[in-house]
């Protein structure tokens, strides 16, 4: 990661400037003697060393990179892509290796364009980790840990403890403090479906779901109460035919292999 291209401006301490000014004034109003060149060189070197030291301290030890309210910045992520930082964004480099790149996004918006095998690029937040699976996405986080993940190409997994949301291109996912990722949904879904997702209104969600919204319904299977799980599964199967060998009972029991098989099949409708 080429951090040097994105230095924040660091000012030398005032004492250095004062010393230079005194030296220059002595030359102008004093005995009219010329300021020796070596003193100017020493002063310049001192300014550089102090500034570099402050930079080293602030970036290498703390690793934070921050943009102002009116600025943005581009980070190159090794050879695998770029991350554009929006205004008022603060992030830190956690890992910067050839085989893994990891950032921590404290607040603000990043837009990542990554061309690499899965799981080489990760972004930690207060409410979970975005795991690149080959994609382009925008991740916006508030200080309190709430945020939104929007994917424009490929797909991203967002993980928090036991919860993981798979967000493909064209879909978005809200991120909640403490709770992690919400169920993802396609941005072209009907307004009533979107509203139902945001309100957690299951019946309305099931009623207004299209085939493509099985993305959301699949995620709901493992998040609704057991008593509601059958409603969700049956709605999925009414929207699209499922493979003959897929066991309803095992899906309702949240057997991982069955859920994965169901997801792989539904993905052809997303």
């Amino acid at each position: 990661m080429n951090i040097r291209e994105h230095l924040p401006l660091v000012e030398a301490p005032q004492s250095v400037w004062d010393a230079i000014e005194v030296a220059m004034r002595e030359g102008e109003y004093g005995s009219a003697r010329q300021l020796p060149r070596w003193r100017v060189a020493v002063a310049a070197a001192a300014i550089f060393l102090v500034a570099a030291g402050i930079y080293w301290l602030r970036v290498r030890q703390a690793g934070w990179i921050e943009t102002s309210a009116s600025a943005s910045a581009n980070l190159r992520i090794g050879d695998i892509g770029t991350v554009e930082m929006g205004p008022s964004t603060r992030l830190r480099v956690v890992v910067d290796r050839a085989d893994k790149h990891r950032l921590r996004l404290e607040r603000g918006t990043i837009y990542a364009r990554i061309a690499a095998p899965p799981r080489m690029f990760l972004v930690d937040t207060k409410s979970g980790t975005a795991i690149d699976l080959g994609c382009e996405y925008a991740l916006t986080m508030e200080e309190g840990g709430s945020g939104v993940l929007r994917v424009t190409k490929g797909w991203v997994a967002f993980q928090w403890k036991a919860f993981e949301s798979l967000v493909p291109a064209g879909a978005k996912c809200r991120i909640k403090p403490v709770e992690g990722p919400d169920v993802p949904y396609f941005e072209d879904a009907a307004p009533e479906f979107v509203q139902s997702v945001e309100q957690g209104a299951l019946t309305s969600m099931l009623d207004s779901a299209r085939v493509r919204d099985t993305l959301t319904l699949w995620h709901l299977l493992s998040r609704v109460a057991p008593a509601d799980r059958a409603r969700v599964y049956d709605r999925i199967s009414s929207l699209t035919p499922l493979p003959a060998g897929l066991s309803r009972e095992r899906a309702l029991a949240l057997e991982p292999e069955t859920l994965m098989q169901l997801r792989e099949e539904l993905a052809w409708k997303w």
Binding site: G154, W155, W268, W270
Partner: peptide, 15 residues
């Protein structure tokens, strides 16, 4: 049968 790239679950097809 056609699908969006996520259906292939292969990062080479993300674009």
């Amino acid at each position: 049968e056609i699908g969006s790239p996520v259906a292939a679950q292969d990062f080479r097809f993300k674009a």
